[in-house]
Design a protein around this nucleic acid. Structure first.
Lengths: 226, 226
DNA sequence: GTATTATGAATGAACG
DNA sequence: CGTTCATTCATAATAC
């Protein structure tokens, strides 16, 4: 079956294209969809494999002794050595001209680009390089979000000056949790980020685990200490 | 053994060639050889997975006889001890297993998750990690909405082919991602996915892919790819 | 090369 | 339900 799958890939860029991205001509033998699926499949196996290996180690360890050092067991980086950097997902990069236009439109107030507007903008920008409506949409989303965050950040900084115990609610966001952290000069979370599930995201969470003494299923770690 | 798997693969990445270097045009394609390697590597994962599942089953069986369960193995004493450090991640993130199950259910047609259904699904998924009914509900909402929007987008793209006026490539503008088939979501095994919830891995495997030879969803022989 | 930053994209949750 | 927001992830760009 495995063989059956890949064998029939259409060769030639017409299925989805290829095309020119940033001046580079790409001819594809697989569609983006196919690539994505492949990537996912491999990723799934990578994950499963790691999980199983971890589990096996844990069980083995338990068998060996009282399982005292379980604490660091599951984090062994060596086991996670399975390389799962499968691809290089290509990503749109606006050209200078496009950026300029986008910025101009953004500054023009209308914070809501609306679908029709997006279409127009996309049409215009496509004169200056490859771009899609999704790209434009994302750009505005990100632009607005980051602009907002920056403001908020500044406000906070001003209000806070030195005191760490500051009352933290300069803006009173939405509802839900007060948990509000923002830090981004730490994007080096590559490998050592571990899993973590929030434990109280919702109170509706009923454990129907038949097992007695059900424990927090997790094995947690600091998901985001950065 | 495991490491031998996927390490050096590069699908569609620059490692494969492609691009313009010093004015020389390179066409990037994947050779049959490379495809074969990929195939092989996927098969390797399939085999490893199967073996590990078997191993786990055997060991688990032993454990059961002894009346010992794995359930609480993964409560990291360190983490719980330093409880303050762990700031709850405010947003639920499905584990790989959960995602697989969700996708499967989603694909099964029933577009109406109904209250009762949600409850059931949540119950099942909670075996694989923290989750609430709200999470499930939201997931289905989002899944459908985005699936729909994508379709609409594609349709639009297909329908219109005259706006593009010139240079560059007047074709597929959406270089972004697919999501039309079934098993593609987590684009990469995020570190969080590496976490596994104790006892249910092997059963979770069922929903992912019980058979090594059946990687299946990959390449549905093209078809509707634009 | 490696590390850091900037930013496009993905997605859970909330709003109307 | 469709749209929008907020947060996070991955990677292009850049600094070191």
């Amino acid at each position: 079956i495995i063989n059956g799958g890949i064998g029939g890939v259409s060769v030639g860029g017409d299925a989805n294209g290829g095309g020119i991205i940033n001046g580079v001509l790409y001819v594809k033998v697989m569609t983006d969809e196919q690539l994505e699926i492949l990537r996912t499949q491999i990723a799934v196996y990578a994950v499963i494999t790691e999980q199983l290996v971890e589990m096996h180690k844990a069980i083995t360890a338990q068998q060996d002794l009282a399982g005292v050092r379980l604490g660091n067991l599951y984090c062994d980086p060596l086991v996670t050595a399975v390389g799962h950097k499968i691809t290089a997902r290509q990503r749109w990069t606006p050209t200078a001209v496009q950026l300029q236009i986008l910025e101009r439109i953004f500054d023009q107030g209308t914070g809501t680009p609306s679908k029709q507007k997006i279409k127009e903008i996309t049409a215009e920008l496509s004169q200056h390089g490859q771009i899609s409506e999704t790209n434009v949409y994302n750009w505005f989303q990100n632009r607005r979000a980051r602009s907002k965050r920056k403001q908020l950040n500044n406000a906070q900084n001003n209000a806070e000056s030195e005191v760490e115990t500051d009352a933290e609610s300069p803006k009173d966001k939405k509802i839900t949790r007060p948990e509000n952290f923002q830090a981004q000069h730490n994007s080096a979370p590559r490998a050592e980020d571990l899993c973590f599930q929030s434990q109280e995201i919702s109170s509706g969470m009923q454990s129907i685990d038949p097992q007695p003494g059900k424990i927090e299923p997790i094995f947690a770690s600091d998901g985001n200490v950065k």
